[in-house]
Simulated scan of single mutants.
Amino acid sequence: MIDKKSPMPLYFQIEEAIKQKIEKGEWITGTMISSEREFAENYEVSRMTVRQAINNLVNDGYLTRQKGKGTFVSAKKIEQKLLGLTSFTEDMRSRGYRPASKLISFQTISANQRLAKALEIPENQKIYEIKRVRLANDIPMAFETTFVPAQLLYLQESHIKEGSLYSEVENAGFKIDYATQSLEASIARDAESEILEITKGAPVLLIERQTFLTNGMPLELVHSVYRGDRYKFMIDMKR
């Protein structure tokens, strides 16, 4: 129960009570929680207080709303440690998930000034633009747009559909060396929310990665939108 004399806000106490049930395994993934009205009656608080607690837990990824059905306990977030350079496919397999990709579009375009600079090629040179939804156990995790210099290797749509881009690159005799990556928080726009099956305005992680080969040439520039309710990145730090 909650303590109305505590300096802790009531909505925060309700959040913590729900979190404990989830973290202790009392409420497993897929459990439908009580309605706002039932929570309000149980805790003797206003529905607005309950709504704030539920909204915060949805934003933090503990709960998910299904329109017309109710609010449910979310699946545990996938954790990725920022220690080594791996492909999405390799990372999901190492965690016991079944990776897959849904190809949205594959085309050859002319590099604009920004892309040409990032890929260290002349402006207007041909590059591959690959848009994919990355899935784990059939759940959309990320919407990814990849740019690769067409002069580097020959790619077909089947190569992208059937396997990892990194595998194709390494099979062509290239060695991948390192990448620089940036992360920032954002919210899902219309197209992203539809593709990732989340509500518009839901929290997402924006990631941009520039990957280099051992000969110093840029291999790719990747823009990714990761679901904030399904994915989190971890890093170990030593002093």
Score class of each variant (00 low, 15 high):
G61V: 02
I235Y: 03
I187M: 13
K76F: 01
K81W: 11
Q107M: 12
K232T: 08
Q125T: 14
I78V: 13
E208R: 14
E123D: 05
K175G: 02
T146M: 12
I187G: 07
L221F: 10
F212S: 05
K161A: 04
D138R: 07
R227K: 02
A100Q: 09
S105H: 03
I235R: 08
F39I: 05
T145V: 12
E170L: 02
G68P: 02
Y231E: 04
R189A: 12
T199M: 13
F233R: 03
N112G: 09
P7Y: 06
E44W: 07
Q66K: 14
I139D: 04
M32L: 08
E38P: 02
M234I: 15
G68Y: 00
G163D: 09
L205I: 15
R209N: 08
G30H: 08
V133M: 05
E144S: 12
A150Q: 13
I33W: 04
M48N: 14
E26Y: 11
A111L: 07
W27L: 15
T64I: 14
F147M: 05
E157I: 03
I198M: 15
T64P: 01
M237A: 08
V133A: 05
K4F: 08
A142N: 07
Q13S: 06
S46C: 06
A202T: 13
N59D: 12
I14S: 08
K238F: 11
P149W: 01
G216L: 03
T86Y: 15
K200W: 09
A136N: 01
Q125L: 09
A150R: 12
L183K: 10
G201T: 08
R37A: 12
V225F: 00
F88A: 11
H223Y: 12
L135D: 02
L206E: 12
A188I: 09
S35A: 03
R189G: 15
I198P: 08
Q151F: 12
V225P: 00
A136S: 07
Q20A: 15
M234L: 14
H223M: 05
K232M: 07
L183W: 14
V225K: 01
Y226A: 05
K126W: 06
R65W: 01
L63H: 00
N42F: 15
V169N: 08
L103S: 05
K4W: 04
A17E: 14
Y154C: 05
S101K: 15
M141D: 00
K24M: 14
I109H: 07
T71K: 01
P122G: 01
A75F: 09
E123H: 03
L103E: 03
K69I: 04
R132N: 08
I160K: 02
G201A: 08
K81Q: 13
